[in-house]
Design a binder for these strands. Structure first.
Length: 560
RNA sequence: UGGGGUGUAGCCAAGCGGUAAGGCAACGGGUUUUGAUCCCGUGAUUCGCAGGUUCGAAUCCUGCCACCCCAGCCA
């Protein structure tokens, strides 16, 4: 299916391949996906996951799932559980390689002491504000802290005191002693440890000092044996610091950091902070609301993990900032579902059609293929009777040119059934069409040679008295603007991102859909919401619409 | 003249000195009992711009321009 166009190796795979060929790291490949458990994984993370796990797999290496849990208070187990579930769902397995930065706290502490002993770290009693002032600006160098030249002995003692809880939060920090005049801000004596007197989800009260990202991350990589440490572009500036730690500490491995650009999607906000805000301010129902770009949301909406991986593969890996069109993602899920989803009938907004020349209490069961191009998927029987339901949109009293559906005096084929002709319409007091009267041609029954006569249009339908009912949720993009900043949600949010159809009609075979994905013919792909559905009363999420070239033609027909 | 990056079609993206892959979108046409699927066809005299080197440059050099990231005791 997805093998016809496999892109050549991206620049990272090229580097890894040449490292392996050169015998670097003993020919070993090891990566890691290091999420901070402070939110849900989104489709941007899927890129990192596919890269980290994918590269390890392709080169016969290993990938670790390592939680970067260095900031207790912002992190929690509910997020680690969600992250584990999402990585598994996407199709990757860390096996026994589940670690946490906190697993290394004791080693990190030793390494911090090593830096102090070598005069490369010091305890700084400047206030946070003072540290900022002393750091200088982008264009001016910083100044040395007055505490920068404390003796090794004094630093050792002060650091031990920090660790014992003798200082209050914010009173002092441990800093690397590098270069306050460096043009790279990350090298202006970065903070290594800060005091946090809160319980950690895993280490409890054991520590009251916690390592900062650069220190913990670099050394976790080195301690764990990472060979290729892949991360996004904003850490490019951190690489000199990453390397500084490796140069100045006795570590067993020397990983290499390689940066790539994050994945961005049009009409989508990917920042974790904004996603959290969407949830907290109730713009959406939850982190897994099907309109969200989280993996949990895509799962609930009916996306397959295969389609997400295919999307990531097609999007590519470079260092260029990019914003990918929604169309590519939609194409990926349509392509996957077109191949695998069984077809069914559902009528979202029913309009009653009475077939006057069809016997009052007759009924027959017509054979309908589960997949038009895959006979091996079999068929099901759909009931037909005198009163049927069709889509309101499929009837127009005064249609534009090229309208191939039902209109006064016109004919359409009822898919897998008969050709019917509209004889008259019934209207209510307000002039709305409430019922359509048709006649049918018994000779045109599907199967039995009834294909002989051709008509322009074919529409889906349901026998009125046999139809079951369901709630159907139709989703549109969450943001109305192509490049949302997330700064003013009131302005940017699409007010019509969710449309709930309370009482759609569905064919009997759909009343208990289970975990299967379906195409509702001519409408799109649908998946029963695992959280909202009840036995006999499913709630279907529309995963994605079908491509709709009529929509364009209709526009032209109406405007031209 | 802070530092670090990036510029190839509407959106992605190959290309690594030998004469611009591919995907998505768009647009034509064919098949079709889903206006779906499927099939076939159509795009860059040009690679941010300007010079230079070379028999030959998207690829090398110089200059310029545009955009992104960095001043958390976040990651």
């Amino acid at each position: 299916m997805n093998t016809e166009t496999t892109p050549g190796p991206d620049f990272i795979r090229q580097i890894v391949a040449s490292d392996v060929a050169a015998g670097k790291h003993g020919g070993r490949v090891q990566t890691r996906f290091p999420p901070e458990p402070n939110g849900y994984l989104h489709i941007g993370h899927a890129k990192a996951i596919c890269l980290d796990f994918g590269i390890a797999e392709e080169f016969g290496g290993k990938c670790y799932l390592r939680f970067d849990d260095t900031n207790p208070g912002k992190e929690g187990v509910e997020f680690v559980e969600a992250i584990k579930r999402d990585v598994h769902w996407l199709g990757f397995d860390w096996e026994e390689r589940l670690t946490h930065a906190s697993d290394y706290f004791a080693r990190l502490d030793e390494l911090a002491i090593h830096l102090i002993e070598n005069g490369k770290a010091y305890v700084d009693h400047l206030t946070p504000e003072e540290i900022r002032e002393y750091r200088g600006t982008l264009k001016e160098p910083g100044r040395n802290s007055p505490y920068r030249d404390r003796s090794v002995a004094e630093n050792l003692e002060l650091y031990a005191a920090m660790k014992r809880g003798r200082f209050a939060e914010g009173e002092c920090v441990l800093r690397a002693r590098i270069d306050m005049a460096s043009p790279n801000m990350n090298l202006r004596d970065p903070t290594l440890y800060r005091i946090r007197k809160v319980a950690h989800q895993r280490t409890g009260e054991e520590w009251c000092i916690y390592p900062m990202y650069d220190f913990a991350h670099t050394l976790s990589d080195a301690l764990e044996g990472t060979t290729h440490s892949l991360c996004s572009l904003e850490f490019e500036d951190h690489r000199p610091l990453y390397d500084w730690f490796l140069d100045n500490l006795p570590v067993p491995h020397r990983p290499q950091q390689i940066e790539f650009s994050r994945l961005n999607l049009m009409f989508t906000q990917m920042s974790k902070r904004r996603l959290k805000q969407l949830v907290d301010e109730r713009w959406v129902e939850s982190w897994d609301d099907p309109r969200m770009p989280t993996l949990a949301a895509f799962r609930r909406r009916g996306y397959t993990p295969e389609s997400i991986r295919d999307f990531i593969r097609r999007a590519g890996v470079t260092k260029k900032e990019n914003v990918i069109e929604l169309g590519l993602l939609e194409n990926c899920i349509r392509e996957d579902l077109n191949e695998r989803a069984s077809r069914r009938f559902a009528v979202l907004r029913p309009l009653k059609v009475v077939i006057d020349n069809y016997p009052e209490d007759a009924e027959e069961w017509l054979e309908a293929a589960n997949h038009p191009n895959r006979p091996e998927l079999g068929s099901r029987q759909v009931p037909f009777s005198r009163e049927i339901l069709i889509e309101r949109e499929d009837f127009m009293e005064d249609p534009p040119k090229k309208f191939h559906r039902l209109k006064p005096g016109g004919e359409v084929r009822l898919r897998y059934g008969y050709i019917v002709k509209c004889e008259s319409v019934v209207k209510d007091a307000a002039g709305n069409v409430v019922e359509v009267r048709c006649s049918y041609d018994p000779a045109t029954r599907s199967g039995a040679g009834g294909e002989a006569r051709k008509v322009k249009g074919t529409i889906h339908w349901l026998s009125a008295r046999h139809a079951a009912r369901a709630e159907v949720r139709l989703y549109d993009r969450l943001f109305a603007v192509p490049y949302p900043t997330g700064e003013d949600l009131r302005e940017e949010i699409n007010p019509a991102s969710l449309e709930i159809v309370e009482d759609a009609a569905i064919e009997p075979a759909l009343a208990d859909p289970g975990d299967e994905r379906f195409q509702f013919e001519r409408l799109g792909y649908f998946y029963a919401d695992p959280a909202l559905s009840k036995p006999g009363r499913p709630v279907f999420n529309r995963t994605v619409t079908l491509r709709d070239s009529w929509a364009r033609i209709e526009q032209q027909a109406l405007s031209g």
